[in-house]
């Protein structure tokens, strides 16, 4: 009689998932985002004769570095159920400050850049305190902050930003790293992307950060310090926007009161293409990279057909609306299951 079968049955291993399982686990928005990237890449490649030239593609991505960095900032805030409309003016502040500090005698980038980033983080801190400790909606709080920062920028510069952009800073955007066909600004962007992405997905603090966005109350009940994570989101956003401002001035070469303004819309577009949802908790660096790539490729395609820049504004707006539609449909389907 063999009533007791002691041989263990085959149970699925809990450890390392197989490749198929990993693929099945990739969220739908990531598929959509990279599908869109591939489509834009195809469009880009077919628009000119040597479209798939890797040098050219890397160059395009290098130029998108300011948007890439500010999109990281926006994604962090959106994961936290927020929205940061002040990134554009903060970028302008960073650019203006970099130029005017560099104009002083004895200034070096080693002293200038920390100051600029600290100022960005400081503005972010004000945002964070305002939004973590009061019930002001983030849209209104950051819109007000954007207005104030814009006003201060104009007031301090008297409407005429001055200063110099040091040569080594220009090298950041124009130069090539070790003769390779991309600039240091691309490395800055990708470095920040990888670091923030790893912190978000592998560390306890990063997982808590996403948990706060997904359900603040549940996170709070689980002992997660909700407010300090909100504070972190906005401080990081301010600091990253300042970095983006520095990259922008390295690329454009002159400080401006308005150059950063379009980045508020574009960073939200990039994050949303990448699967970030305003309901919080969703989105990540993998998707946001695709979002930035889509915008960069699309802009280049439009430029290569000599399509005027207002059309790009229209296209970006329409892309955002379509992506929001797709995401809301996806969320609805998921909810029904």
């Amino acid at each position: 009689m063999t009533s007791l079968d002691t041989t263990p049955r085959q149970v699925p291993a809990l450890g390392a998932p197989t490749l198929a399982e990993r693929v099945a686990r990739v969220p739908t928005p990531i598929w959509v985002a990279y599908g869109l990237t591939a489509a834009c890449l195809l469009l880009l490649g077919l628009s000119t004769s040597n479209g798939f030239d890797p040098d050219r593609l890397l160059r395009i991505l290098s130029n998108a570095a300011p948007l890439g960095v500010v999109a990281i900032a926006q994604t962090l805030v959106i994961i936290n159920r927020g929205l940061d409309l002040s990134v554009g003016p903060v970028m302008n502040t960073a650019a203006i400050l970099t130029a005017s500090l560099s104009a002083a005698s004895g200034a070096s980038l080693a002293t200038t850049l920390p100051v600029v980033i600290l100022v960005g983080a400081g503005i972010g801190l004000v945002n964070g305190v305002m939004l973590a400790f009061t019930r002001i909606p983030p849209l209104l709080g950051t819109l007000a902050m954007a207005t104030v920062v814009q006003g201060v920028n104009a007031l301090v510069t008297r409407g005429q930003p001055r200063g110099v952009v040091p040569g080594e800073l220009r090298q950041l955007a124009d130069g090539r790293v070790l003769g390779l066909p991309f600039s240091a600004s691309l490395l800055v962007w990708l470095g920040l992307l990888v670091v923030v992405g790893l912190v978000l997905t592998t560390t306890v603090a990063g997982r808590q950060f996403k948990a706060v966005g997904a359900n603040p109350r549940a996170a709070w009940l689980s002992g997660v310090p909700v407010r300090s994570h909100t504070l972190t989101a906005y401080v990081a956003s301010g600091a990253l926007a300042a970095v983006a401002g520095v990259l922008l001035i390295a690329y454009s070469g002159s400080p401006s009161l308005t150059a950063g303004d379009s980045y508020a819309l574009n960073s939200v577009v990039a994050a949303v293409i990448g699967g970030a949802s305003l309901a919080g908790g969703h989105g990540g660096m993998t998707g946001t990279f695709a979002g930035v790539a889509v915008l960069a490729f699309l802009t280049t395609v439009l430029n290569s057909y000599n399509i005027p820049s207002p059309v790009q504004l229209v296209v970006n707006g329409v892309v955002l609306i379509l992506m929001l539609l797709v995401n809301s449909r996806l969320a609805e389907r998921k909810g029904r299951r």
């Binding site: 504004l313 296209v315 707006g317 329409v318 955002l320 609306i321």
Partner: peptide, 8 residues
């Protein structure tokens, strides 16, 4: 998004 479209 609409404001971007309209402005364009």
């Amino acid at each position: 998004a609409m404001s971007g479209v309209v402005q364009g």
